[in-house]
Design a protein around this nucleic acid. Structure first.
Lengths: 210, 210
DNA sequence: CGCGGCTTGTGAAAAACTTCACGAATGTAG
DNA sequence: CTACATTCGTGAAGTTTTTCACAAGCCGCG
């Protein structure tokens, strides 16, 4: 039933879920048209996206809000909780770890690692900072499945390799390099400079356009 | 020459630029093959991407590193400096503003706004935090062109509207909503929860795959 | 100068993704 | 019960993006 899902579809599924959570009456229904209106897409796209995973709507009626919400959670793999470790206790990493939306969405911050001796032993975001030497043990003992990798560029590949070796299942990578990991371990890259560059490109381009 | 550039192309251009900066001898040359190797793409894709903007290479030789670098900077619109304001002095916004890579890439942080009376007047990331009431004046007086919008969901649309009205040219949006702005003003969305969801989707999916 | 080894730039082919359009369900009203 | 107004699910058509393949250009060497 589910073969190769476009990346863009997954992003939209997240959007749909977020839209559904904005609804007041969870017992109500919503049409593909309404769902498309929030979310900058079309009704056909909404239906096509969902059809990859099953038939969740009722013809003539639409989708039941609470039902679709549950389906989306299950599809996105957040009908459970995930144990997340932060590697790199810099400003950005810590800011993320304290971001309440993460926990609300099913992601539990369980450990922080940083090699800086000044940070090791101190408490950040409610957790003691550990030296990376203990990383592998922690992955096993705490059941860490996801890693937020927010270390300097030079250390990213090494820590990614160790994470994979230790059995981590996915990496959210903030370092501006393409990590070399086995294809079974998904990596999501977040590159904020790149986002700004996309902005200045679009602005500059608007001038050249005709 | 430049019509409709795919979004994915722009992202790759950023990557190419970053790869080029890793080179030691700026007088040397690089082939599309080498550039593709870093960056998770193909040589043909590199050439196609660049061909949208001109012919920068020499057949039989490749691209001159320093030359291509300059071209990419110009294409991405970072052969100049941009004046950026932070709206929302929360943890994430501040962490970004202190991120040294921004300045290094041509983005200058020039002002911070936040309505919290406890923050107004204090110094963060080297700048005094101002109340948003002075936002429009600051845009004009400081020549602010880009806004990093890192406010709570509820305030995002209002501040986006004010930014556009004040003449801001682009918005980097961290709020998890689609901003409603005129199509001439580009918006880049950064949604970290969505990135994590893409990860757990990929992990979960790997199980269902067959 | 002419030849051979490379590597670009680019139409054309292939693949991926989105939009269209319509049959099939579903609920409502008369 | 039938007619009607909706709205989903989905193959087919259309569009966009990627990949392919090859002619054309460049360099070095004899």
């Amino acid at each position: 039933m589910t073969r190769k899902i476009p990346d863009s579809t997954v992003r939209r599924l997240s959007h749909y879920l977020r839209s559904l959570e904005g609804f007041q009456e969870p017992g109500g229904t919503v049409s593909s048209e309404e769902l498309a209106a929030r979310g900058q897409t079309t009704a056909a796209q909404v239906r096509k996206d969902l059809s990859h995973f099953g038939s969740f709507g009722k013809r003539g009626l639409g989708y039941r809000v609470d039902e679709l919400r549950a389906h989306l959670r299950s599809i996105l793999g957040i009908d459970r909780r995930w144990r997340v470790a932060l590697v790199g206790a810099g400003r950005i990493g810590l800011a993320l770890f304290e971001y309440p939306a993460f926990r609300a969405r099913g992601y539990d911050c369980v450990a922080i690692f940083d090699p800086d001796p000044e940070k090791v032993g101190t408490v950040r975001a409610g957790l003691v900072v550990h030296d990376p030497s203990g990383f592998e043990d922690a992955v096993r003992d705490l059941g860490i499945e996801l890693v937020i990798l927010a270390v300097p560029e030079g250390a990213a590949q090494e820590m990614a390799g160790r994470a994979v070796e230790a059995g981590v299942k996915g990496i959210l990578n903030f370092a501006p390099i393409r990590l070399n990991v086995p294809p079974l371990v998904p990596v999501e890259d977040v590159n904020l400079v790149m986002e700004l560059e996309a902005l200045s490109f679009a602005i500059t381009q608007a001038g050249h356009e005709e």
